[in-house]
Simulated scan of single mutants.
Amino acid sequence: MSDLLHTALHAAKAGSDTPPAVPYSRPASPGTGGYPVQIGFVGLGAMGWVMAKNLANHRAAHVHASPPILVWNRTSAKADSLFEELGQHKVRVAQTLEQVVTECDVIFTALANDETVKSIYQQFVQTLKHTPPARNKIFVETSTIYPTLAGELDVLVSSVPHCHLIASPVFGTPSVAAAAQLVIVMSGDYRSKQQVAYMLVPGVGKKVIDLGGNIEKANTFKLIGNSMILGTLEILAESYTLAEKSGIAANQVHDLVKDIFPAPGITRYSERMSTNNFDGATGFSIDGGIKDASHIRRLTAVHNSPMPSIDIAHQHLITARAIHTGHVEAGRDAVEVLDWSGIVAGTRVAAGLDAFESKNVHGVVPED
């Protein structure tokens, strides 16, 4: 009821011309058959951990008799820390993937790369073919993967009776996720999208964008969106490098960014570049950035739609990772995980500057 009231109030405030946060009618009942829906969450990285936390908190507060969500991560410490923070009434820790896939009605996955996603789903299906489900089971794949992999997963999952897959990548950094302001994209089975959308909004995200029944479309859309973000990162990196070379202070450039590009993600990456803060532990790893850039470039080749800025950004990401790897191997002080805002290292070294230790942080560079 509180979800319904929230949605109604939000719509009333927004006005009739504003699209609804969820583009589907509300399901007739919150579950599938009148029993409490058991949710599972696989993958507790920087984004998955926050999404699972918000989902658990929201359901405990707003869904009557909702059981604790069942979480699993390759390294158990992440799952244990979530359990310690939220407690047994909101979270249970699964011992195996088999436990998640057999016990849960809706299973979210948030994983690092295509290879991991494919491996996890193969394990899901192998388990379910030995113990076929007796009722509907929905898989919600939120990772950024190449579109054709979503199609492969759909064929794999639908080979098991009563099982459905929706592609549901999200836009936003971990800090945006913490504020439950993610933009969620969905494609695939309509009824599954309808049910899952109301699980995620407003507890995990602020809106859902529906891309229709072709399951590959959501991941295509995600790559298009990430091309905009990556292209902006490249422009920021080049601009900060030019500012340093021409004697303009980084903090002044950052103030300008906040004035003319006041989007949270852009200003956050700008702040990282302006202060040499490239710790990816709470951001987006450069490995993930290179993976996404590679997917975007592959997509542009398939559709004969060149994106030169992404080609350049891809090279600068690789340059930054190579320098960071060299620092780690040499025992130099370096962050454990390099954020993809570290792309600026590629433009800096091309201009003859230090990769990660700009001297242009606190003031204007003195003129000769």
Rank of each mutant, 00 (worst) to 15 (best):
residue 199 M to H: 15
residue 32 T to C: 07
residue 259 D to V: 05
residue 89 H to V: 12
residue 156 L to V: 07
residue 187 S to W: 10
residue 300 T to R: 11
residue 111 L to V: 02
residue 11 A to W: 03
residue 54 N to H: 09
residue 332 R to T: 05
residue 359 K to H: 13
residue 153 L to I: 06
residue 24 Y to A: 06
residue 256 L to A: 08
residue 145 I to C: 04
residue 228 M to V: 13
residue 368 D to H: 14
residue 82 L to N: 06
residue 240 Y to S: 00
residue 94 A to Y: 00
residue 218 A to L: 00
residue 132 P to W: 04
residue 250 A to G: 01
residue 63 V to N: 06
residue 129 K to Q: 15
residue 202 P to K: 03
residue 187 S to M: 06
residue 323 I to S: 12
residue 274 S to A: 15
residue 99 Q to L: 11
residue 83 F to E: 11
residue 193 K to N: 12
residue 23 P to W: 10
residue 79 A to R: 06
residue 361 V to P: 02
residue 188 G to Q: 11
residue 156 L to K: 03
residue 115 E to D: 14
residue 72 W to K: 00
residue 163 C to H: 06
residue 72 W to A: 02
residue 112 A to C: 05
residue 149 L to G: 02
residue 118 K to D: 15
residue 353 L to D: 06
residue 249 A to S: 14
residue 232 T to K: 02
residue 300 T to D: 12
residue 259 D to P: 00
residue 48 G to R: 01
residue 117 V to Q: 04
residue 253 V to Y: 14
residue 258 K to V: 09
residue 153 L to V: 01
residue 324 H to Y: 04
residue 343 I to H: 01
residue 131 T to S: 10
residue 86 L to S: 13
residue 250 A to R: 07
residue 166 I to K: 12
residue 235 I to R: 07
residue 202 P to F: 02
residue 72 W to I: 04
residue 50 V to L: 02
residue 52 A to M: 01
residue 62 H to V: 08
residue 26 R to W: 02
residue 275 T to A: 06
residue 203 G to W: 01
residue 280 G to P: 03
residue 162 H to L: 05
residue 235 I to Q: 11
residue 152 E to N: 13
residue 139 F to G: 06
residue 217 K to P: 00
residue 301 A to V: 14
residue 108 F to N: 09
residue 224 I to K: 01
residue 243 A to F: 09
residue 143 S to V: 00
residue 156 L to C: 06
residue 259 D to T: 10
residue 126 Q to V: 11
residue 321 R to I: 09
residue 106 V to T: 05
residue 209 I to P: 00
residue 352 G to K: 06
residue 293 A to R: 07
residue 203 G to I: 01
residue 260 I to N: 04
residue 84 E to I: 08
residue 78 K to G: 03
residue 293 A to G: 15
residue 91 V to W: 01
residue 126 Q to L: 10
residue 33 G to W: 13
residue 284 F to A: 15
residue 141 E to T: 00
residue 159 S to A: 14
residue 333 D to W: 01
residue 183 V to Q: 10
residue 96 T to R: 05
residue 294 S to L: 15
residue 98 E to L: 08
residue 201 V to T: 05
residue 229 I to Q: 06
residue 90 K to I: 12
residue 200 L to C: 07
residue 293 A to M: 14
residue 164 H to E: 14
residue 10 H to I: 12
residue 240 Y to P: 00
residue 366 P to I: 13
residue 301 A to Y: 11
residue 279 D to P: 03
residue 199 M to R: 10
residue 155 V to N: 07
residue 178 A to M: 11
residue 258 K to G: 09
residue 174 P to W: 03
residue 237 A to H: 03
residue 351 A to Y: 09
residue 12 A to E: 12
residue 107 I to M: 04
residue 26 R to M: 11
residue 32 T to D: 13
residue 164 H to G: 05
residue 213 G to H: 05
residue 165 L to Q: 11
residue 316 H to C: 14
residue 353 L to A: 03
